[in-house]
Design a protein around this nucleic acid. Structure first.
Length: 439
RNA sequence: CGGGGCGUAGCGCAGCCUGGUAGCGCGUCUGCUUUGGGAGCAGAAGGCCCCCGGUUCGAAUCCGGGCGCCCCGACCA
């Protein structure tokens, strides 16, 4: 992409409404634009990141054997009356009436809808287990939306729903999602700690929140200090094997949210206990028959008798993750994108647009990177060097390749790594092989 | 929903108390000079001062009522 033709409205000053660093940086980097309280438009740069995060979530769900589908944003109130949640959900649910005076709602979640679909088609235990998911916009009319996309009213969420014949099967589905979540967040360069959590109004008896530690987190959390250095990577997961031992290795180490933490019974010494604030990026629940019973989602067992399915639901806040990654990875100059979610891998800076040698070198590097499948943003604007450096640092692409007349005289360009600021003078060919991974 | 704050040019703000020509910085446009970490000079464009009503000869400014946004708290799969 050539910056001179892109839509990247960066801001030098911070809009007054932004309080936390991720919100400030998203506004300054031209990623989002507020449309109303807690409702945002995603501008091209922000949308690229959102899509990347969504794709990682998708790949890890698929790897765990889940099946993607898409349910609508607008739902009929009737299903919610059936589960009893139409009244329970309260003012947080956005209720809509159509021209025929039928009650509709903008979905805050999808348990009812998925259960309705499931019960219509699935009649035998032999069709289980099943995990279905979608990635769809939700709306919750929060009393006080805040912190940009971290707590919006409209937000993009991945929600998955598992159906099993018995508790053992359901626990296995839960474990699969537990591990899929660890992999998902790890791929984004995040340390997400699974913490025992309250199930809240959704009900159930088993629940973990995946928490990123950050000063701007909305809730207080408690965990063993070993979590801060524990290796969370699990590359060799066999989702069909026995997952209990590996789950046990994580759940045996203390970590709890505010609701589940009790100082009186906490087993940790003051020395071991870390008290911090956290951002919830994922939440998994096992809730048994809470929806399958009232909505009569049952399958025939081996003996022919109908049994209500054991269910779980599993959410990841996709749009919130964009903010969470920034909270976890930035410096005074701007965002530092982990390569896996970066909107572009390389920022190619032409320090002297209009200079024949610089233009030619940049065009050459640009086309060779594109040919190698490396996503590159070429700053070919007629701006001064300082402005280009500042904007590139702000938008935080992992690599900056700086082409200027001075270095070009000796065939050198400067390769800068955004994460630690290290730079080196290298030849164009050497820079290209570094960035493309090809000799 | 309780408490607090703010709505003035694209962004950040001053002016309001004490009513009388709507300002500053950044950004934008033109030209010239510049050019390796947010340049300099000269010129220019850009405003329903959130909305409605009231007081007044006269309202960005005073009064009343709305609306919007932000913060703290409570709330929150």
């Amino acid at each position: 992409m050539r910056l001179s033709r892109y839509f990247l409205p960066t801001l030098k000053e911070t809009p007054a409404e932004a309080q936390i660093v991720s919100h400030r940086l998203m506004l300054r980097a031209g990623m989002i634009r507020q449309a109303a309280a807690g409702i945002y438009s995603w501008l091209p740069l922000g949308f690229r990141v959102l899509k990347r995060i969504e794709q990682i979530v998708r790949e890890e769900q698929d790897r765990a054997g889940c099946h993607e589908m898409l349910m609508p944003t607008i739902q009929s109130a009737d299903l919610w009356r059936e589960s009893g949640r139409y009244e329970d959900y309260g003012k947080e649910m956005l209720r809509i009436r159509d021209r025929h005076d039928r009650d509709l709602l903008y979905g805050p979640t999808n348990e009812e809808l998925i259960t309705d679909i499931f019960r219509f088609y699935v009649k035998s235990y032999r069709e289980l287990p099943q995990i279905l998911y979608h990635i769809q916009w939700k709306f919750r009319d929060e009393i006080r939306p805040r912190f940009g996309v971290m707590r919006g009213r409209e937000f993009l969420m991945k929600d998955a729903y598992s159906f099993d014949f018995d508790y053992a099967g359901s626990k296995h589905s839960y474990n699969k999602m537990f591990l899929a979540y660890l992999r998902t967040f790890d791929r984004m360069g995040l340390r997400a700690i699974p913490m025992r959590a309250d199930t809240g109004p959704i009900g159930g008896d088993l629940s973990h929140e995946f928490i990123i530690l950050a000063e701007t987190g909305e809730s207080e959390v408690f965990c063993h200090r070993d979590w801060l250095s524990l290796d969370l990577r699990r590359d060799d997961v066999d989702y069909d094997g026995d997952l209990e031992p590996v789950i046990e290795s994580f759940t045996s180490l203390y970590a709890a949210t505010d609701e589940k933490h009790n100082p009186a019974t906490c087993p940790l010494s003051a020395d071991e206990l870390v008290t911090a604030r956290g951002i919830e990026v994922g939440h998994i629940f096992h809730f048994g028959t809470k929806y399958s019973a009232p909505m009569n989602a049952a399958v025939a067992g081996p003996d022919g008798e109908p049994v209500h399915c054991q269910m779980g639901s599993y959410g990841i806040g996709v749009s919130r993750l964009v903010g969470a990654v920034i909270e976890a990875s930035h410096d005074d100059a701007g965002i530092i994108w982990p390569e896996a979610v970066a909107p572009f891998k390389v920022g190619l800076i032409n320090l002297r647009t209009g200079d024949a040698a610089c233009d030619a070198a940049c065009d050459d590097i640009y086309s060779r990177l594109e040919a190698a499948g490396v996503e590159v943003l070429l700053d070919d604007r007629d701006e001064r060097a300082g402005a280009k450096f500042a904007d590139m640092d702000l938008i935080g692409l992992p690599w900056q390749l700086v082409v200027g007349p001075r270095g070009l005289k000796s065939g050198q360009v400067e390769l800068k790594r955004r994460s630690d600021g290290t730079r080196e003078e290298v030849s164009i060919d050497s820079a290209l092989s570094r960035l493309t991974g090809q000799p």
